[in-house]
Design a protein around this nucleic acid. Structure first.
Lengths: 261, 261
DNA sequence: GGGTAGTATTTGGTCAGACCAATGAAGGAG
DNA sequence: CTCCTTCATTGGTCTGACCAAATACTACCC
């Protein structure tokens, strides 16, 4: 079935590999500008389309970026890490974000309910500590200085609750969803920074969740989390309206144009 | 300042975005074959090189793969990112099965509830067909002759409902869990084969689920699925008692055998 | 009639050359 | 000297062609 899978390699893959090698070897340093496409294609002995396919692969990986008329450059912050497929899919497809939030609403509310039932004293202590950290950081208000820490503390709080559900599925799924959603939550919290009122509501919601779990009230925990995520969803929709619509219009125009032929 | 940063979007990015959308929307399902490049390019009103750049981006992301002369296909392990880590752990640690069932109870009951609310007429038709297939096969009773088909039909029924929830998370997760659990469900159904009474109950449960979804009763659907899975869990525990000794015996034999070398 | 080898078609892979559009530096006007 | 125009540079896109692998089809042979 998958016997001859290794066989041929696409030329664009070979080129992309070669460019990656040059970057990793230091021949191309972050911030450096690549040779013009025509020139580089000639040097590698390949056609420009093939070279371009390779470049686009690396662009989508985040290793290169190019400006029309300007040139192609090696990304200057390589340490930013790889962008995983799900990650940027989330940024570009708003309906996926909605799906994910809906899923999280179910996952985390149920996890909180289970945690309320099953948490050991040690679990409650951990959750309490996580909550205290969140509360302490959020008490400083929308401050850019501690923003990154606020996000981390927020995630850690939810994660700790999920782990107290004592079901590995909940723990692992929550963790992997957080990994995917991280920068996304980041954006959202950043958006909330300026709105003092929303900020206070967030703190109330955290407090309600913690209180419900601590008093072992499963139903209250479920409701509190659902309310929290509903609020997040609401604020996200508000932000979405602000953001300009994707220029998918461009594609539509082309499709119409194609149809008119 | 940050206004002109976004500037224009590369055409290949727009195309890649459109293809991703089709995949997420379900217009292109995992395993599906894309139209030929020339044809697709014409439909989108773009040139083949531009389309190719987009395809190569998605290939490098692992969303597509293409074989020269064969065609371009949507990768069928979209959800691998979530499943991979604990995929084989589940097989090694059977005690995690309880966790998985608990998770499935939540996932599928919620999916059924959403499906009851959101299913289109086409969805209901698909679910109805899936149910009819299940019912027809189960009507033959515990017969080894059609056993494998019964398992498949059963899974397809649940999967169809999950997809009718119109949330990619539910669809993908359900599919990936089924893949992990397949041989497990297989074992369980096989165990139920002999017990005529249990077999009838299974049919009743399927009927209840289908009826709840068809009548768009979200709460009833949720309850029906939870009851179904609770029943499965119950029967699994019964089976576990039977097989625990047996497998332990086999393991001990192996250990003795190994020691004797 | 059925299976098989050989051919034809489909389809992704690659190439060449051209034109467009954004960029940015050189050169001219004030 | 500053600002604006101009134009070569360079990425972005298109057309059309040919190659190679996979597949579909046909005709031949048993």
């Amino acid at each position: 079935m998958s016997a001859a899978r290794i066989a041929v390699q696409r030329l664009s893959d070979t080129i992309a590999h070669e460019l990656e090698r040059r970057i990793l070897d230091g021949a191309l340093k972050p911030g450096d500008r690549l040779q013009p496409e025509r020139e580089l294609a000639a040097e590698l002995g390949v056609s420009r389309p093939s070279l371009r396919e390779a470049i686009q692969k690396l662009v989508s990986k985040g290793l290169l970026h190019s400006r029309q008329g300007g040139g192609t450059y090696v990304t200057d912050r390589l340490e930013a890490g790889f962008t995983d497929p799900w990650g940027d899919m989330l940024q570009k497809h708003p309906n996926l974000q909605a799906d994910l939030l809906e899923f999280r609403a179910m996952l985390e509310s149920e996890a909180a309910a289970l945690a309320a039932k099953r948490a050991t004293d040690a679990d409650l202590e951990r959750i309490g500590e996580a909550y205290a950290r969140v509360e302490a950081l959020f008490a400083e208000g929308p401050s850019a200085r501690v923003f990154e820490e606020q996000v981390k503390a927020d995630l850690a709080f939810h994660q700790t609750i999920a782990e107290a559900a004592h079901n590995v599925m909940f723990g692992h799924l929550t963790a992997s969803l957080f990994r995917v959603t991280h920068e996304h939550i980041d954006l959202n919290l950043r958006h909330l920074r300026r709105l003092e009122e929303d900020w206070l509501r967030l703190r109330d919601q955290h407090a309600a969740i913690w209180e419900a779990v601590r008093s072992r009230d499963a139903d209250a925990a479920r409701v509190a989390v659902r309310r929290h995520i509903a609020f997040v969803e609401e604020s996200m929709q508000a932000r979405a309206q602000h953001e300009a619509r994707e220029s998918r219009t461009q594609l539509i125009r082309r499709m119409e144009k194609a149809e008119s032929h």
